[in-house]
Design a protein around this nucleic acid. Structure first.
Length: 425
RNA sequence: GGUGAGAUGGGUGAGUGGCUUAAACCAUCAGUUUGCUAAACUGACGUACGGGUAACCGUACCGCGGGUUCGAAUCCCGCUCUCACCGCCA
């Protein structure tokens, strides 16, 4: 959720930024928010004045009763009841204005940073760091990962569909072991990078889903357990970031660096076609997520550090990748800037997104009330960031496709200590 | 699932209708004292919103939401969570 004060201060910047997302009504929306906030302030001042009078009267009545001046007290009581009807009207007004204001704010996405390119579709994304070596080519009988999976018995979509439905792969044998190895490898790398490992709950309540901004924006994308009012997490970002909901950190607590492995559940309603084949898009996948809470002035640098971390993982896995800086139109609702990592699959002849690293600035922390005490003892909103490091299903697909040979699939050197085998044959 | 107890500031914990502006202690910070450390003493010490250049002032907040009352941390109702015991269970 954007900060109203920020919108007041940098109105033009906010409007321009929001327009970069293709939000043509940005100017009107921002104006509406500020007008509503003005209204709220005015009612608040009025209400406080009345309440102050009421408090004063209550004290006086207490005194009058004590000194036995009952008639005067009764007189004051009628005054109180008149005041009370006024305050209750004002209370109703301020309540509805606050709700309206909040709803308007929740409908506004984050303001993109100035370096975010404008554009509406993924074609407008900017290649931030390209793959400079020649792209790998495979011989003619190279297979896409879903066919490799069949040949080497790595995962089984049909049986997964029998158990649950389409998009729920069953990993088997080498496939299951490969996933377990990758999780451990990614977690170890994150620990080396200074991220504290956590195992969070996989179901979260509404406050948490709202805190990181999945609600109301992505309501339809999450599985919901109606009976208990809980959402299955679409990413570990939700529970991990919500660890710090309603927290005021001390200066020395920053930066916070945490990581966690979780399965992720996404309904992916409306997806179809070749792009969802195999592991390209599934309802359940495993992911190691890294999360950081930073002082505002350090968050840009932290983001770069996260990019380096993810780059290191992809290099260790010997996968050809590039980094995109997402354009305004492709940017997630809550992000101020996002870099996507894509691995090239020679077998599918396309780039596959395997990681997304974002800075949310104060958009999430405002909703979470995640603050820190600065040197002056003032509470300020921290910046939150997160990134996949990495998303498993697609990495498995990339490894299978890129490291296939006529003799089987070669496991990247750094992963062998984790898998315990060098080849999938 | 059943029964019972509880939820007060960073922590412990007092507070059964106005004397609470939430006691006291601990922790923290600043100062005094001190050869250094420690101790002692003094003071400061919640969050949000509104007004004000500021000092400061006003309002709300004692798990959450309602209610009673001139007045609620305190009384009443509902909910959530925590703890204990019982049942079931990996």
């Amino acid at each position: 959720m954007l900060e109203v004060n920020q919108l007041r201060q940098d109105t033009d910047k906010a409007i321009k930024g929001l327009e970069k997302r293709g939000l043509s009504a940005a100017q009107q929306l921002v104006k509406d928010v500020i007008a509503l906030d003005d209204e709220r302030k005015q009612i608040q001042a009025n209400l406080d004045e009345h309440l102050s009078e009421l408090n004063q009267l209550a004290k006086e009545i207490g005194q009058l009763f004590k000194s036995g001046e009952k008639e005067k007290a009764e007189l004051a009581k009628t005054e109180v009841s008149q005041l009370k009807t006024k305050t209750s009207v004002l209370e109703d007004q301020i309540r509805s204005v606050k709700i309206e204001l909040e709803n308007k704010l929740l409908d506004l996405p984050n303001v993109p940073q100035s370096i975010v390119p404008s554009g509406t579709t993924e074609d407008d994304n900017e290649v931030y760091r390209d793959w400079t070596d020649p792209l790998p080519t495979l011989d003619d009988n190279a297979l896409p990962h879903w066919e490799l999976a069949e040949r080497y018995k790595i995962f089984d979509l049909k049986t997964g569909a029998k158990i649950s439905g389409s998009g729920f792969p069953l990993f088997v044998g080498y496939g299951a072991k490969l996933q377990r190895a990758l999780v451990n490898f990614f977690l170890d790398k994150a620990s080396e990078g200074g991220y504290l490992e956590m195992q969070p709950p996989l179901l979260v309540n509404e406050d948490s889903a709202r805190g990181t901004g999945q609600l109301p924006d992505k309501d339809g994308q999450m599985y919901f357990v109606e009976r208990d009012n809980l959402y299955l997490i679409p990413t570990a970002e939700v529970p991990l970031t919500n660890v710090y909901r309603d927290v005021i950190l001390k200066t020395d607590d920053l930066p916070v660096k945490i990581c966690g492995y979780t399965p992720c559940f996404r309904r992916e309603a409306g997806s179809y076609g070749a792009h969802v084949k195999g592991l390209n898009r599934v309802h359940q996948f495993d992911k190691v997520e890294i999360v950081r809470i930073e002082r505002p002035e350090n968050s840009d640098e932290a983001l770069m550090d996260m990019l380096n971390h993810v780059s290191g993982l992809l290099e260790a896995l010997e996968l050809p990748y590039r980094i995109l800086r997402l354009c305004g139109g492709d940017l997630g609702f809550t992000a101020a800037i996002t870099y996507d990592f894509e691995v090239y699959s020679a077998a599918q002849k396309r780039w596959l997104e395997v990681s997304s690293v974002s800075n949310f600035e104060t958009y999430q922390t405002n909703r979470l009330k995640l603050r820190f005490k600065d040197e002056d003892g003032k509470n300020k909103l921290a910046h939150s960031l997160n990134g996949s490091a990495l998303a498993l299903a697609r990495i498995v697909a990339s490894i299978l496709e890129n490291h296939q040979t006529g003799d089987g699939i070669k496991i990247p050197k750094q992963l062998i200590p984790y898998t315990g085998f060098e080849w999938i044959k």
